[in-house]
Amino acid sequence: MKRQIFAAMRPLRVLSAALVLSIGFSAASFAQSVLVMNEQRILRESAVGQHITSRLEVIGQEITAELEPQQAAIQAESEALNAELSALSEDAIRQRPDLASRYEALQRDAAGFEQTRRIRAQELAATEQQAMRPVLPILQEVLQEIVNERNADVLIDRSAVVYARDSVDISQSAIERLNQRISTTPVNRVRVPTQAAQQQQ
């Protein structure tokens, strides 16, 4: 679940890149003052990030509970059909068109369940993106503030750095300042219309 949750944090990478550009990114900048941050850590350890993660886990559990009856019915029919087929010879199976009809219906149900599961996954991702919208501008302000105070020329994510001293990592400072400005944000489940979800696939 957490891997799914943090997989949708890509907008922050765009934010970071925009911040680097606003400072005046150039090849020569690396010879000047460079700061690094760990965006995943900021979102994972900040109060608002933990709040979003907690709410997404609850919503994910709700989605799982909604899918379980359909999944259980498909599994039960699959096991029953397999048991019946295994007890019959090929000739006997050919004389039972009802078994072929059940198999086709099972295939349709399984395909429908998979489609529903993908739509619910899209809903969870959309819910996270919506929850992050009010957080990103505040985080951008925090990062810009730290950059200005440290008179830095470049801010990049630690994942793009081979080595950096702890003294140039502003992640902890960003977490503390973000906590002072926002600790919670609405995390409401987004419903994706089936037709819209099918068009995106």
Rank of each mutant, 00 (worst) to 15 (best):
A27S: 14
I156E: 02
L88Y: 09
Q140K: 11
A160R: 03
I170A: 05
Q199C: 07
L81G: 08
F25M: 09
S78Y: 11
L12K: 01
L136H: 06
A174G: 06
A47V: 05
E66K: 12
N38G: 02
A73K: 07
F113H: 13
A111K: 03
S159W: 00
A111Y: 14
Q199G: 04
K2E: 06
D166M: 03
Q172G: 10
F113I: 03
S101L: 13
I59R: 12
A125D: 11
I74W: 03
S171Q: 02
S101F: 12
I59T: 08
S159R: 11
L81T: 01
R13E: 09
R120A: 10
Q195L: 14
P69K: 10
E141Y: 03
L99K: 04
A92F: 08
A28Y: 10
A92P: 04
A87Y: 01
R13W: 14
E68V: 12
P186M: 04
R150G: 13
M9P: 02
Q95A: 14
R41S: 13
A83W: 05
L35V: 08
D169C: 06
S167V: 13
V48M: 09
S33K: 12
I52R: 03
E45M: 02
G49F: 06
R41L: 13
L136A: 11
S89M: 00
I138M: 09
R181W: 08
A17Q: 10
V34W: 13
L155M: 02
N82C: 02
A27M: 00
Q107V: 15
T185I: 09
Q201I: 11
Q115Y: 02
E84W: 02
R150K: 15
A197G: 03
S78L: 04
T185A: 06
D91Q: 12
E68T: 15
V36M: 05
V58D: 10
I74P: 02
V14C: 00
R177I: 09
E39L: 13
L21W: 11
A152G: 10
A92Q: 11
E66G: 15
G60T: 11
S16R: 10
R102M: 02
Y103Q: 15
R96M: 07
S78Q: 14
S78R: 15
R158D: 12
R102N: 04
A110E: 03
A7W: 15
A164L: 04
E84L: 04
E128L: 14
I146V: 06
R133K: 09
E84Y: 04
V162E: 05
A197N: 04
E57H: 04
Q198M: 12
T184K: 14
R13C: 01
A83E: 11
T185G: 06
T116D: 09
N188E: 14
S159A: 13
V14I: 05
P97L: 01
A72P: 06
A7V: 10
S29K: 10
V161M: 01
R158N: 08
A28H: 11
S173P: 01
I175H: 07
E104F: 01
Q4V: 11
S46H: 00
A28M: 06
V135N: 00
L99A: 06
I93H: 04
Q130I: 07
A17I: 07
I93M: 03
R55D: 07
A76Y: 07
